[in-house]
Design a protein around this nucleic acid. Structure first.
Length: 607
RNA sequence: CGGGGCGUAGCGCAGUCUGGUUAGCGCGAUUGCUUUGGGAGCAAUAGGUCGAGAGUUCGAAUCUCUCCGCCCCGACCA
């Protein structure tokens, strides 16, 4: 090689090194290095008996978190490092959509929640207490009131709008049933963001920007399958909302997805595109059906499919009013849809006395001859648009054949009440809907003026007129996101962290460090990697290979270097990827640092 | 809030039914020696108010009562 080429190559290597170091520094947290002999947080061979899901098991076994009380956890150093990286990504993306970070208190005076009315509407999930003077206080489970309190005095003119404030802050919800480690907890860190707008159009445009920011966040976190779906707005109020769901078996929500991705909805609001066809109506006929109460019993007894029957379901709403819901026998009533339609907070099954009081016979109930003044009748489309159904006769042991809505009964309200079933046609694509489970890791709401009106959060418009600000709110569960990544990215040995949030970038193992050259080489690599800006976890303990590898698998760092006498004799260092099974390569000792820089930078370029 | 289950060392468990020395075992921890490529061997050591309280009894981890905590299913849930 000509000396000039050698100098060029050297300059090129120097430039690349600087470049890698720059890229790596973009995603590097303050603490670069750690010796495993000093690391706090034991790895456990056995998971606690109560841990059942992958994320719960590995977060405990790997020494990332420790339980303190039901649904309340401490983060150990490894867990904290991951969380810090997750938060960093979230901050960057919030800043990119013009968010301004703030920090509001965890402890809030109840009077603020009295203003919004939520101290009345939210139940036991809100933890309330008194301070030493007996003043009612509460622990924030979300911060609409606090942010409105802030914004209504700081922002007063249309010239200041729109504005988005966000925070990463502890939330407390006195959950009835925490479960699955960090998936459902009482105390947790949430990124919550609130935007304020002068017009609905402005909110809607901004909402789309946040939606895109969320997609970037979850992609950068290494979430493999995360979908945004239409959702029920629940107690938050507002009209449009989306939930971001990490698809995972252990998820608490049920999702219906079109295979082509054009339709995604929570089971609570999902609709199907199923069509019903009217047949020529046959004559109504009473049949004796002794002791046949359930749909299955009646259908079997009469030799018809459940889709030729009508089902009657009775509920009592929050005002104790009787609701008579009718649906075709092969469907189930989706209580969330019914509750939303009725605009009631609560639905429970009605008892037989109430049903009889309305003139219906439990097990043989029908809309025919029922006392419509005693109940509200709601009919699913499947019931109203099908023909010749078997329905109850409102007397024990009798049913009616050939019921036809429109001919035999015309009252009631026809709406969509049906719970979607897997395989039902998609309302958009017509393809069979797939049912999946999902973990809700984020949500976004177009809130409107619910809080700004209630709490007088107004601005002066161009005409000097006072208007309530139009709000959006946007949440992400930080710890839950970390857990969801494990659910989607692990093997039988432990988590497989994406580079973007891995606790360290390179796991350096010194195997049999008492053999000649091993400890020296490992120590040298340790400081060289640090100098190259790489986050290294250095296993300097001299454990047996089996223990060292098992721990490394539980810690899940993407890149692993193994310094051992065998390979060192060849001038090599062994290199293994966490996601590469047990395969490994040998690198020339001299190339190791550059190679690690290159791989870390490549993994972070997209993140 | 309803149903079920469990509380014995940091983790996993035995012992409880049928009360009886000093409450055991594995992992983990400490020390020494031997080992060293997928959770090693030998030896020694430390670590427990048997969830708490009351009761029965000569004697309680074990029986009785009360309470507490934890887990699972359901209800509930931005």
């Amino acid at each position: 090689m000509h000396p000039r080429d050698g100098r060029r190559a050297a300059r090129r290597r120097a430039f690349l090194g600087l470049w890698y170091r720059f890229v790596i520094s973009l995603a590097t947290v303050e603490i670069f290095v750690m010796r495993m002999s000093q690391l706090v947080g034991q790895r456990l061979k056995d998971a606690p008996r109560d841990a059942q899901t992958a994320s719960h098991i590995f977060l405990i076994r790997g020494g990332y978190i420790r339980p303190v009380s039901t649904g309340i956890y401490s983060l150990l150093p490894l867990g904290k490092r991951i969380i810090t990286k997750v938060e960093r990504i979230i901050r960057e993306e919030m800043d990119r959509v013009d968010g301004q970070e703030v920090l509001m208190p965890v402890v809030l005076p109840q009077e603020l929640w009295d203003e919004s009315g939520r101290s009345q509407t939210v139940g036991a999930e809100l933890l309330r207490f008194q301070d030493r003077n007996g003043k009612p206080m509460l622990l924030g489970m979300t911060h609409e009131e606090a942010v409105v309190h802030l914004c209504r005095s700081e922002v007063t003119s249309y010239k200041q709008l729109p504005v988005m404030l966000y925070q990463l802050q502890t939330k407390y919800r006195d959950e009835a049933r925490p479960r699955a480690g960090l998936i459902r907890v009482r105390e947790f860190t949430m990124k919550d963001a609130y935007s304020f707008h002068a017009t609905q159009e402005n909110l809607e445009a901004y909402y789309e920007r946040v939606h895109a920011a969320y997609e970037r966040i979850f992609r950068r976190l290494g979430m493999k399958q995360c979908v945004s779906i239409q959702s029920d707005t629940g107690m938050m109020g507002g009209k449009v909302s989306h939930e971001f769901m990490a698809v995972a078996e252990c998820g608490e929500d049920t999702l219906f997805l079109s295979p082509d991705g054009r339709y995604k909805a929570n089971k609570e609001v999902a609709t199907s595109g199923i069509r019903f066809e009217k047949q020529p109506a046959l004559a109504l006929e009473e049949v004796h059906t002794p002791e046949k109460k359930s749909i299955d019993e009646v259908a079997t007894f009469l030799g018809v499919g459940p889709e030729h029957t009508g089902k009657a379901v009775f509920f009592l709403d929050a005002d104790n009013k009787l609701i008579f819901a009718c649906i075709r026998g092969d469907f189930e009533v989706n209580e969330t849809k019914l509750r939303n339609y009725l605009k009631t907070k609560e639905l429970r099954f009605a008892d037989d006395e109430r049903i009889r009081a309305a003139g219906a016979e439990p097990g043989y109930a029908s809309v025919l001859s029922v006392d419509a003044t005693q109940c509200r009748i709601v009919l699913d489309r499947s019931f109203a648009e099908s023909s010749n159904l078997v329905v109850g006769a409102n007397k024990a042991d009798y049913h009616l054949k050939n019921f036809n809505y429109g001919r035999d009964f015309t009252g009631g309200e026809v709406v969509d009440l049906a719970a979607v079933r897997p395989g039902d046609p998609c309302p958009v694509s017509g393809l069979p809907l797939e049912m999946k489970r999902g973990i809700e890791i984020g949500n976004i709401f177009q809130l409107g003026t619910k809080y700004s009106t209630a709490m007088s959060c107004n601005f002066l418009d161009q005409n000097g007129k006072s208007q309530p600000m139009i709000m959006g709110c946007y949440g992400i569960g930080v710890g839950r996101s970390m857990a969801a990544v494990i659910e989607q990215s692990h093997d039988q040995y432990g988590p497989i962290w994406p580079m973007s949030i891995a606790p360290y970038q390179v796991h350096l193992v010194s195997l049999n460090p008492n053999q000649p050259g091993v400890a020296e080489t490992a120590e040298a690599l340790y400081s060289e990697l640090r100098a190259a800006g790489i986050e290294v976890l250095y296993d300097d303990r001299g454990e047996k290979a089996g223990s060292a590898f098992a721990d490394a698998d539980l810690i899940g760092i993407p890149l692993r270097l193994i310094v051992a006498a065998k390979s060192l004799a060849l001038g090599k260092v062994e290199f293994k990827r966490r996601d590469g099974g047990r395969n490994s390569d040998l690198l020339d000792r001299a190339d190791v640092v550059a190679k690690m820089q290159e791989l870390v930078a490549a993994a972070l370029t997209d993140a």
